[in-house]
Design a protein around this nucleic acid. Sequence first.
DNA 1: AGAAAGCGTGACCATGTAGTCATGTTTTTC
DNA 2: GAAAAACATGACTACATGGTCACGCTTTCT
Lengths: 229, 229
Amino acid sequence: MFFFTETPLSRRYPPGKLPEQRPGPAGGARARNRQQRTAALCDAALPLFLSRGLETTTVDAITQGAGVAKGSFYRYFEDKEQLVATLFAPFAEALDAALDGCAEAIEAAEGPAALFGAYEALAGDLAAAFTLNPEVVRLYLQEHRGPDEGARRPIRTLASRVREGAISLTEAAHARALLRPLPPAVTALAVVGAVEAILAAALEGELAFDPPSVIQSLVDMMLKGVAAD
Amino acid sequence: MFFFTETPLSRRYPPGKLPEQRPGPAGGARARNRQQRTAALCDAALPLFLSRGLETTTVDAITQGAGVAKGSFYRYFEDKEQLVATLFAPFAEALDAALDGCAEAIEAAEGPAALFGAYEALAGDLAAAFTLNPEVVRLYLQEHRGPDEGARRPIRTLASRVREGAISLTEAAHARALLRPLPPAVTALAVVGAVEAILAAALEGELAFDPPSVIQSLVDMMLKGVAAD
DNA sequence: AGAAAGCGTGACCATGTAGTCATGTTTTTC
DNA sequence: GAAAAACATGACTACATGGTCACGCTTTCT
């Protein structure tokens, strides 16, 4: 029954940097240790990124937080950018899966009911991805419009995928006459922006409503604003 | 006719730091010089903030960009935070005026037509404020969700005012039964988020439509989604 | 006019940071 | 079991940055 006790794959951080000649056997001491150290560094970095900002957080602060020596950081990561990429990898993977799944479901859908079902499934998948590690989502919301430089690059890449995915799904809905005759890009970006703003406020504890009722209101509002009659 | 050649007051940066004993006569050499230097530093800082980020931009880079010695920065500003506050002052002033004006117009409004007029006027005022200095708006969009620390503090303060203003205006509309029965805070934040997302995309040149048609689509979408039938 | 305050400059200092490396230990591989 | 590779550590280097300051010039004020 070991597979029940394993962390779900999508929560696991991938390795950042691998040794050339002797990475060690899978499941061996080195692999286990690598996983543990990688996770310790990422988990120590995340709250620091949130409280001080991505660029102003130092490698020293991260290693101190993780309780390891500075040299260890550079054994497991090339630099801060690679750590950030690692930190976002599980979320990025879940997001891609959700977007791809929705695109396929739309492709296969026959009637409007199946189409709405595809979007509903997407919303559910996204909610699950957010719940996986909400702090990572907070970091995304905090940094995703900053300059595409250095450690922020992986976040900007993710932001591009979000925008492009939203636009392409909106175009699919538009092509099936599910939406009012507005430019799909405008519709998509407005919806993404609205969701992100609500999400940011909710994650900061600035919304005095329980999540289900907020989601209900948001979906209601967006359908009215965006969907064809 | 000198008042026609003056820069509009709202475009002028206020002084950052003032000398204690001899600030000099208004309109005198010192006042003129102070204005010029303050503006040069702010104008040099803005593009650097946009390309490198607020926190990673150094005082050295700013003074080099402005073509002045480092010591001059510290004569006119306490630190980077005060420069940022100065940079946003004209925009913050215009925003406050627009919000206050709208609140007053709502207070005085008798019928729904006057209310919609108030919101239209707000939209116009905001558009004017954005046009005043779009790069400042870009910087706001880039940084407004970062940690409320150091140089970013003035931007976070502005962001709070935006949120609070939007919520309070939405509550006013809600109280007059202009909106569908959704929580005003959710409605307000969603609208602000949608506008900000579209604005960000437009300012980055990522929207292949002319501004008027985008605004038309956005208003259309939001009214349908938010307004009572 | 002359004293006092403000201004402009860039060298300078103290501090903090990214990244390296020599050393000793553990794991892998054969 | 022994050689080679990987690992953990923290001192160390090289450099960048925030902020200061002494000096010479300009403006203000009386």
